[in-house]
Design a protein around this nucleic acid. Structure first.
Length: 889
DNA sequence: AACATCCCTATTTTT
DNA sequence: TAGGGATGTT
């Protein structure tokens, strides 16, 4: 494991001479030990402590916006400058390529751009690959193994499931992939998975499938993402000499985003960070591991991250120093105040309080805005953006952060009509596009003749007349001879088992690959790439395609070839793209960013819009269902991440109606809204242009909704909200009461529940001035720009929907996102209703019934499909709605 | 092999 | 609603 760029390789021992970094710094005068070196200038005392405490285990709890990356990079610069280690002796791990890139750049800036090194700065996975390539044979791989992506993985699993004679409908490959992913995240090999897990899939054959999968990977000379960690762990565990080599090498270990590490990463890290004889022999007596993270920003539990890793750091590394970074340099006091108050509702946290000196009476409070439906939300936010733009705020400084990607569409639609520039971050990636993956499959076959998965992908793409029959023959032959498919194809075309036409087609494929492979060592890889795509007929296939996206695909293929230019060779390129699935976004044009809260972590914007704060969506119902209290806490951290992205302005929205899977459902405000502190939050009336609402417009319904029923405490409307806050009793601890009580059996809200059920119909329809309204409300003229405003006052008591739904909502799943969220309370308490609903297939309605819907008014039932009704509404036309949302009239 | 039709499902996402 | 996947039809 001698790196050629490691000066220590030849002569072990303490670094003898100044590293490049140290030289660069020393040149600026004075011995490096003399404080303060200029890279330390400007650090606050805590940051400085985090940088200078180089020896022993250190945990840096870095709150949002407290200069985490700065600490990390400065610490590395400091280690280099003080000659504690060479760049090649520092292991620095991040989660994303982006983070690794940024660190590399910033270290470069700090030490004067001359550090060519830091060979061990990278993501867990890229470092894992590096280690695995060196010792591949120890786990039965060849050093040039391929890295499978999810797509390949699924196809492979599917084959295995079919090979086991299991019904792949009943046991979807996708599900097993997730299951296996979970095992790998926890560092579990087939022998170690819990019996229950093993039984849970494929008629109890989970373990066998996992085993078969791993065996198949070895025969394909391939590893999946999980293996990039698991194999190194196995190597370290089974080959102490190899581990000792790494112990001698790594003097300093740094980990970014420690709160996101999973068990496998933790094990990997712990092995590398162990104190060992090898280290002691090198004069290293302490484990110089520094983990940086923020437990409050742990949002990847669903992906296997263990917040626990950060919570018990001091137990893993006894004698550790914990440094808290709490001075925030990003946001206003209002924003921090709101975020802090919210996150304080979490129990599982180490506890930090961010503070700032950034006070200014001009600062805006965090706003909470109510909207009628998601269309209005998009419209109003669009308008606010345009207003800011008129006040010469750059679009680049604004972002819309959503909980789920389906929310994006509404904004996109709206912005397109407004002609407002936007960019969607995340979403389908370049390297995941079909045409790119096809092209890559060709390249993989050329570099890796054993890559059956790649071969399968493209044998008949473009169409070559190789149908099921021919491929089945090929597979059987290959299996019988245990040889790769390409090789099998080479044999098969010699014989006469194949019909003439497929035989000729396959022969050509074989010939082509042989030729391309032979050109690999000599031809420029970009030219070869182009040649492959042309000669295979792949380019032609898209040229002939008349569909609208074909030109774009051709463009992507060109881009692919172009980007190959940045790499040495075809294999080098393939390696890169296997690990780096992100494509750079251009920040050239001024545009609003739209992204999920997850992908916003680490970013910051002057103005942040947070739409969709509604129960069921945020917190997401599924997190609640699957994660219980910790699921809720993770959602709350997500909210915290969202708020703390804002520097100057944070604008939260919730609406009363949202369209889910094409059907309108009414929603109730997120419990997180109740967890925001009054003094940092302004509750606003909609500021949009449509008339008719005026002062008290939304207020009316809000008050009616919350004041009349169990949710009174959650009313954001003054005076209702204030009153509730002041009263403190009743339902004022909304979070601990309603939502959670149900789930965690704390007793529920027995008192409030019957009240809500017996509320009269009049209670439910309260006009904006607080008067109960009847049918006449529908006769109000619609405001010109807003077709539903005629219904303004009436809607919105969520309980009416709850109540009316009752009987025929399927247990949890079928109820849909919002339905089950809202139904959560009363129904689960009663239990029997749930049970009844499962069995009760019959609708309460029959075709021809007159019904009333909160959103669409009166109508006639035209069709009933389970709990879905098609209703001809008098005003709104024909709509499909869940029957829980209409009432008989 | 291309096209039609039915059925099912429906977070967050990096590597 | 919409999109994918699997199945059936020509």
């Amino acid at each position: 494991m001698n790196d050629s760029n490691d000066p220590r390789a030849a002569s072990p021992g303490r670094p003898a001479g100044a590293g490049i970094a140290a030289r660069a710094l020393a040149a600026r005068g004075g011995p490096v030990a003399a404080p303060p070196a200029d890279y330390l200038a400007g650090l606050n005392p805590e940051q400085r402590a985090a940088v200078e405490t180089t020896e022993g285990p250190v945990l840096v709890l870095a709150g949002a916006g407290t200069g985490k990356t700065r600490v990390l990079t400065t610490r590395i610069a400091h280690i280099l400058a003080t000659r504690r280690a060479y760049a090649s002796q520092i292991l620095a791990v991040t989660f994303t390529n982006k983070a690794a890139r940024e660190m590399r750049n910033r270290i470069g800036l700090l030490v004067g751009g001359e550090v060519e090194g830091m060979p061990w700065l990278g993501t867990f996975h890229s470092i894992g690959v590096k280690i695995l390539r060196k010792h591949a044979e120890l786990v039965g791989l060849k050093p040039n193994f391929t890295i499978l992506d999810t797509d390949d993985q699924i196809r492979l699993i599917k084959q295995l499931i079919q090979a086991e004679n299991l019904d792949d409908k009943r046991w979807p490959a996708r599900t097993f992939a997730n299951l296996m992913d979970g095992w790998k995240n926890r560092g579990l090999t087939p022998e170690h998975i819990p019996e229950g897990d093993a039984r849970a899939f494929g008629n109890g054959r989970g373990r066998e499938l996992y085993r078969a999968y791993q065996a198949r990977l070895l025969s394909l000379n391939a590893a999946d993402f999980g293996d990039l960690l698991l194999h190194p762990i196995a190597i370290f565990q089974n080959h102490p000499d190899v581990l000792a080599d790494y112990h001698r090498r790594f003097r300093y270990i740094l980990v970014d985003e420690y709160q996101d590490t999973n068990v496998a990463q933790y094990l990997w890290l712990r092995l590398l960070a162990q104190s060992s004889e090898a280290r002691v022999a090198e004069g290293i007596r302490t484990v110089n591991v520094c983990c940086v993270g923020d437990d409050d920003q742990s949002i990847y539990g669903w992906r296997g991250a263990e917040v626990d890793n950060i919570l018990r750091f001091d137990k893993d590394f006894p004698g550790s120093t914990v440094i808290r970074l709490e001075r925030n340099y990003r946001s206003t006091a209002h924003i921090l105040g709101a975020a802090a108050h919210l996150i304080a509702h979490n129990e599982d946290r180490l506890g930090k309080t961010l503070f700032t000196d950034f006070h200014d009476p001009e600062h805006e409070k965090v706003t909470v805005n109510a909207g009628w439906d998601s269309e209005e939300e998009a419209r109003a936010i669009g308008e606010e953006i345009e207003q800011l733009q008129r006040k010469s705020h750059a679009l680049n400084d604004m972002a819309i952060l959503v909980r789920a990607s389906f929310q994006m569409r509404e904004f996109e639609d709206r912005f397109v009509t407004l002609g407002l520039n936007y960019r969607v971050i995340g979403g389908p990636r370049f390297y995941e596009r079909q045409e790119i993956r096809d092209a890559l499959a060709y390249f993989r076959c050329v570099c890796q003749p054993a890559d059956d998965l790649a071969f399968e992908r493209i044998v008949n793409t473009p169409k070559r007349g190789l149908g099921d029959a021919a491929l089945k023959l090929l597979h059987e032959y290959a299996r019988a001879k245990t040889m790769p498919l390409i090789e099998a194809a080479g044999d098969l075309v010699q014989g006469d088992e194949l019909k003439p036409r497929p035989r000729a087609a396959l022969a050509e494929v074989v010939r082509n690959f042989a030729r391309w492979s032979s050109l690999l060592p000599t031809m420029r890889h970009t030219d070869l790439g182009e040649m492959i795509l042309d000669e295979s007929g792949y380019t032609e296939m898209w040229q002939a395609d008349r569909s609208a996206d074909a030109p774009g695909r051709l463009e992507n293929l060109k881009e692919l070839i172009r980007s190959m230019d940045d790499y040495e060779s075809l294999p080098g390129f393939l390696e890169h793209i296997a690990l780096v699935m992100d494509a750079e976004q251009n920040a050239e044009t001024d545009a609003v960013s739209i992204m999920t809260l997850h992908s916003a972590k680490g970013l910051e914007f002057e103005t942040v819009f947070l739409p969709g704060w509604e129960e069921g969506l945020f917190p997401h119902q599924r997190s609640l269902d699957e994660g219980g209290r910790s699921g809720l806490e993770e959602e709350r951290r997500l909210a915290y991440v969202g708020i703390t992205r804002g520097k100057k302005r944070v604008k939260i929205w919730f609406v009363s109606n949202r369209r889910i899977h094409g059907m309108w459902q009414s929603t109730i405000p997120s419990r997180f809204l109740d967890e925001l502190p009054e003094d940092h939050v302004d509750v606003l009336e909609p500021s949009t242009s449509y008339g008719g609402y005026g002062a008290g417009g939304m207020g009316g319904y809000g008050a009616s909704r919350w004041d009349q029923n169990a949710f009174s405490a959650s009313s954001y409307q003054t005076p209702g909200w204030r009153r509730a806050q002041a009263a403190g009793g009743g339902g004022s601890t909304y979070a601990g009461g309603r939502g959670q009580a149900i789930r965690y059996g704390e007793g529920g809200v027995a008192g409030s529940e019957p009240a809500s059920r017996t509320a009269s119909k009049a209670d439910r329809y309260i006009s904006r001035d607080g008067r109960p309204v009847g049918e006449t409300g529908f006769d109000e003229p619609a405001a010109p720009t807003f077709d539903r405003s005629g219904f303004a006052g009436k809607l919105t008591d969520p309980l009416s929907a709850n109540r009316s739904r009752g009987s025929n909502m399927p247990a949890r799943k079928g109820g849909g996102l919002y339905a089950s969220a809202r139904a959560g309370g009363p129904r689960d308490i009663e239990g029997s209703l749930v049970a009844k609903s499962v069995a009760d297939e019959e609708s309460r309605f029959t075709v021809g019934d007159r019904v009333f819907h909160l959103k669409f008014g009166n109508g006639t039932v035209a069709l009933i499909e389970g709990n879905k009704l098609t209703v001809d509404f008098d005003r709104a036309g024909q709509k499909r709605v869940l029957d829980g949302f209409v009432e008989a009239v």
